[in-house]
Design a protein around this nucleic acid. Structure first.
Length: 403
DNA sequence: CGTCCACGTCTAC
DNA sequence: TAGACCTGGACGG
């Protein structure tokens, strides 16, 4: 789940599932977790969520009781508590009955219902975590999705920072400036503008300085919605795509990037570059895999090897945020249902639905930088162009590379 | 079986 | 610029 869109979808999930639900008692932590205990206990409380970049904040709010004494019980909180989560590589929220608690549910909030239900933070790899009584991490910049104007300003007023000495693909993972961008987003964003991943970040971004000054004189853009509109009208630039591309993922609903999910194919079809057959991939200076097309650019690491990508297979289990029922009736999606039928959900049926059947293949490349198979008009290529049409219809022009 | 890979930070030579 | 922190799925033998 772990890039900005997935964190935001998680917050939407919590708010939807927990609306009207009353939680009770203490917050339980799994035995194996090394994360802090959550010192909160309440007879009756509600849970709401908000996201910012790659963090989610849960707010536990005790419900006022007529019985004053009850709320004063020893050890019981009458004050709200914020808990800040980061998801690591594998974190997400689920809402299930008690006996359906998923494996790796490391933090659990119990409802007061008869067959009790549990909101749990699930994190197989345990790279994620939480901070009770937490605040947004101060070292993280404004959210690329919901604090667009501040995000943009934060970047453009700090271009002298040495963070921008690095290749753009590496700077895009710097959460001090790009809070919410992760490995698949950086690839998708650079690809759409045909920006070589290993061009110096400052070189790419300093051109936007004068552009913004111009805009300042003419129009005043203050809210994010406005920025979205402008982005659709004005020439696209790297920073505006850092805003709109993640929002496209949010718009799709579901859980975003989640290969284990039953209907992962919708997200997979949205990808134009990351893990797409025919694209190149190499390791950056932090040994993270960057996917791209064409020339890597002047700052590409020497001797960089390309990791071997592997195919992924969808699983039966379905814990899609979008499809879970209000009642925690588990995972009873018929296994016989075809994937095609599970993957409609293309907002606004304006777009003629596409062949969801064709599937992208992972590259099986060698040790050296992988090159696209020349004579292999991959289905991915077709797919890219059809995806592009979808995007254009929704107002997002893509500078597709169609060569 | 074993090896490689994964949506992300962290801190220690 | 390496590891460390972890689990588990895909693949190869």
């Amino acid at each position: 789940m772990p890039e900005g869109p997935e964190l935001h979808l998680a917050s939407l999930f919590v708010n939807r599932m927990c609306e009207g639900v009353v939680f009770t008692g203490s917050v339980k932590k799994s035995q194996v977790s090394k994360r802090p205990d959550v010192p909160f206990t309440s007879e009756a409380y509600r849970i709401t969520a908000q996201s910012r970049g790659k963090e989610v904040r849960l707010t536990l709010t005790p419900i006022k009781s007529d019985d004053v004494k009850q709320s004063v019980k020893a050890g019981h909180s009458d004050q709200p508590m914020d808990i800040i989560f980061h998801f690591g590589m594998s974190g997400f929220f689920r809402f299930t009955t008690e006996d359906e608690l998923p494996k790796h549910a490391h933090l659990q909030f119990y409802s007061n219902e008869k067959p009790c239900r549990v909101l749990s933070f699930v994190d197989a790899r345990r790279f994620g975590g939480w901070q009770p009584n937490g605040t947004w991490q101060p070292d993280r910049g404004p959210c690329i999705m919901f604090e667009y104007e501040t995000f943009r300003e934060n970047v453009l007023t700090h271009l002298s920072d040495r963070a921008f000495d690095r290749p753009i693909c590496e700077t895009l993972l710097n959460q001090k400036y790009f809070n919410g961008i992760g490995n698949y987003l950086r690839a998708e964003i650079l690809f759409r503008l045909n920006i070589q991943p290993f061009v110096k970040a400052r070189t790419v971004l300093e051109g936007l300085l004068c552009k913004d000054k111009k805009a300042e004189e003419t129009t005043k853009t203050e809210i994010s919605d406005q920025a979205v509109k402008n982005a659709a009208v004005e020439p696209l630039d790297l920073l505006s795509l850092c805003h709109t591309v993640p929002l496209e993922v949010v718009k799709q609903g579901g859980k975003g990037y989640d290969p284990e999910k039953a209907d992962y194919s919708a997200f997979e079809a949205w990808l134009q570059c990351y893990c797409v057959d025919g694209m190149k991939s190499i390791r950056d200076h932090n040994s993270r895999t960057i996917w791209f097309k064409g020339d890597p650019g002047p700052m590409a690491p020497k001797n960089s090897k390309s990791p071997k990508a592997k195919k992924r297979v969808k699983k039966e289990d379905n814990h899609d945020y979008a499809t879970q029922k209000k009642v925690g009736e588990g995972v009873t999606k018929a296994r016989t249902v075809k994937q095609e039928t599970l993957t409609e959900k293309v907002k606004k049926e304006k777009v003629p639905e596409k062949q969801t059947g064709s599937k992208r293949q992972r590259i099986q490349n060698g040790k050296e930088m992988s090159m696209p198979q020349q004579n292999k008009r991959s289905s991915a290529r077709r797919k890219s162009s059809s995806t592009e049409m979808v995007l254009q219809k929704s107002g997002h022009v893509t500078r597709q590379s169609s060569k």
